[in-house]
Design a protein around this nucleic acid. Structure first.
Lengths: 189, 189
DNA sequence: AGATCAGACTAACAAGTGTTAGTTTTGATT
DNA sequence: AATCAAAACTAACACTTGTTAGTCTGATCT
């Protein structure tokens, strides 16, 4: 199993197509054409369309859940942790623009792993919310409804995959810094 | 043509299903079942699946484009205009949670009206960007990259439809106010 | 009562769906 | 040159898709 680059190519191509049209609208024949082969040949590498979606989504979801745990248990103060969460999102979205689209838009089409995915997402959001609540408790963060704060940040971070491709001149660090400024400091002078 | 409530029912039901699974994954038989009828009967009221999507998306997109034009031409200062844009989104998303999902996720499946939709969206974003740029020029707004500011706000506002249904205790005014505080003033103390 | 007609129905279509079975090609290793 | 596995192919399957044609039902209007 050294050279599984063909399978990875298929998954990468699939993710690209899924981003453009969504999982349901992409057929195995579409994917095959994009790969320069016939649909039946795909099955020498993958076991089903569903498996492709699973691989794309679950690996990213695990990255997020694991990433925020490390941040939560780090030594920073809570505003620092939020900045790290922003960096985490920017990093994953930059490295995996296509996969992020599936994670956001096609998770409901997971069949066998839907419950697992949802448990990862719930865990992630619970930890995120804890950071915000602890930041309010320690007077680092304004006492606004913490769920609305999380919603604002998470909506922005989850949409990154839509905007990053349009702004290739912007490097990941600059983007993360600008986002931290805006999301944490606000925009008014 | 007084009583076209049946057609409206179909569109409303379709929007609900589109939100759950996306346009492509919803079949006319799914929609018919949800309406308590057979698929063929739908065609007594609508001409195609595509027409349903068009009606859902275009009407909302026009509301937004028209709404932001009124705001842009109003007398407020630019931070005030941004607050009004937030209110506009909260209002439309509250009244049309299902349709907003299609607008966000299924616009690329528009066939005849894709170009028109994109022109509306471009116009909307250009006006939004103008408000921010003018706010920076008049020193109301921090001199951060205006596109990143717009991206942050727009990502949050476009995701409202995902969160509003979960928080029915929150009324539209409170939500708009909290969002204005967070998006404009930031979250740090 | 008879006519009208919106709106439901059944039946069927052509095209497209994911997937399997079996076969041939390819290209590296013996 | 022979071998062999990886990976392509053709052909076909059972099922689902959006949609059309034609028919029946039941309420409303004259």
């Amino acid at each position: 199993m050294i050279q599984q680059t063909r399978k990875e190519e298929i998954i990468k191509t699939a993710a690209k197509l899924f981003k453009e049209k969504g999982y349901s609208a992409v057929t195995m024949r579409d994917l095959a054409t994009a790969m320069g082969m016939k649909a039946a040949s795909l099955y020498n590498h993958i076991s089903s369309k569903q498996e492709i979606l699973k691989i794309i989504i679950i690996s990213i979801a695990e990255d997020f859940t694991q990433g925020i745990d490390v941040i939560y248990n780090s030594e920073s103060n809570n505003l620092g942790k939020l900045s790290q969460v922003i960096e985490l999102h920017v990093k994953i979205a930059t490295n995996n623009t296509y996969g992020m689209a599936s994670l956001n838009n096609d998770w409901m089409h997971l069949e066998g792993q839907l419950d697992y995915y949802l448990s990862l997402r719930n865990k992630y959001e619970a930890t995120f919310l804890n950071i915000i609540k602890e930041g309010i408790a320690s007077s680092e963060i304004k006492a606004v409804n913490p769920e609305i704060i999380m919603f604002t940040m998470l909506s922005t971070l989850r949409s990154l995959f839509l905007w990053i491709p349009k702004k290739e001149d912007l490097n990941a660090n600059d983007l993360a810094n600008s986002l931290s400024r805006i999301l944490i400091q606000g925009i008014n002078k």
